[in-house]
């Protein structure tokens, strides 16, 4: 009776464990990260970006932020194009995460200008008052060791130039973090392809309406004040206190954003709320 033979029991148990292991864990290596799911525009990290990635790992940002967008309607609307296997071939380890206490970061690259990240990382609550993200201002004090970075690039087998290594001199971990965040998800041109066009005649449904202006003020505080300042006098973005765009152009600008200027697109807010913002910016001073 093998029930009484511990060694045989051990061998049988190991065999039972190995069946599922081989099929669901070993076998996928045949398909994943092969030519089939390569994306040519996806490049390895530069030394600075890789350093930022290592800081991300060290600080455990993955405990609050995921890095995969699932192919679900709301998710694609909120974060951008869904993630493809080929986008992660240089990720060792993967950083998909399992919790979204904060938003997904798979497509954060290019969403904000660098200046926004510097301010936000150092003191998230100064940008988003009720955020529970910790302050990371100590990253500005830690300098990067270029020789260590070289070693890391060699270990990973990523291409790098001497110029890249020597340019690390004097860079801080904060610089590295921002460089990494700006790279995330921007290897494929998803922004251009996902762009929605505003079609048809654009007419303000309730011009100068008091309630709309008030609603717009609240929306402004939550979504715009971090860059254009509470009193519209400008900070990371320009001052908005002297409106010069007509309603339709302003609507279009907020809807589309300014791709290379660091002004995010706010299409996801929906047209009702965008018009409230327009009313607030263009008519808040009117009696």
């Amino acid at each position: 009776m093998w029930e009484k033979k511990p060694v045989i029991l051990l061998i049988l148990a190991t065999a039972a464990i190995l069946v599922g292991t081989c099929i669901t864990m070993v076998l996928p290596f045949v398909w994943v990260n092969t030519e089939a799911d390569r994306i040519t525009s996806v490049t390895p990290y530069t030394p600075l970006q890789q350093d930022g990635r290592d800081v991300y790992i060290r600080e455990g940002c993955n405990n609050c932020h995921s890095q995969t967008v699932r192919p679900l309607v709301a998710e694609v609307l909120r974060y951008g194009d869904y993630s493809k296997s080929g986008e992660f071939v240089y990720d060792r380890p993967f950083l998909w995460g399992s919790r979204r206490t904060g938003p997904d970061l798979a497509r954060i690259g290019g969403k904000y200008p660098d200046a926004w990240h510097y301010k936000h990382m150092a003191d998230p609550q100064s940008m988003v008052p009720r955020s529970n993200m910790p302050d990371y201002d100590f990253l500005t004090e830690a300098e990067i060791d270029p020789e260590y970075s070289r070693k890391k690039m060699e270990t990973l087998g990523f291409p790098f130039t001497e110029a890249q290594i020597s340019s690390l001199e004097g860079k801080t971990e904060m610089d590295a973090m921002v460089a990494y965040l700006q790279k995330l998800g921007s290897d494929i041109p998803w922004r251009q392809s996902a762009k929605t066009e505003v079609v048809g005649e654009l007419a303000n449904p309730s011009p100068k309406d008091k309630a709309a202006i008030r609603a717009g003020q609240l929306l402004y505080a939550d979504n715009c004040a971090m860059c254009h300042a509470e009193d519209l006098t400008g900070d990371i973005g320009p001052a908005l206190d002297e409106p010069y765009l007509d309603d339709a152009d302003l609507f279009r600008l907020i809807h589309d954003g300014i791709e290379d200027g660091g002004m995010p697109s706010f299409a996801a807010l929906g047209s009702a709320r965008l018009w409230q913002l327009v009313n607030f910016i263009n008519y808040r001073k009117q009696p």
């Binding site: 060792r92 993967f94 260590y148 270990t155």
Partner: peptide, 17 residues
């Protein structure tokens, strides 16, 4: 890479699985 840092032997989707 050092006493306190290593990179996973697997990458991306494989590493996740």
């Amino acid at each position: 890479v050092s006493l306190f840092k290593s990179y996973s032997a697997f990458a991306g989707t494989n590493d996740a699985n």
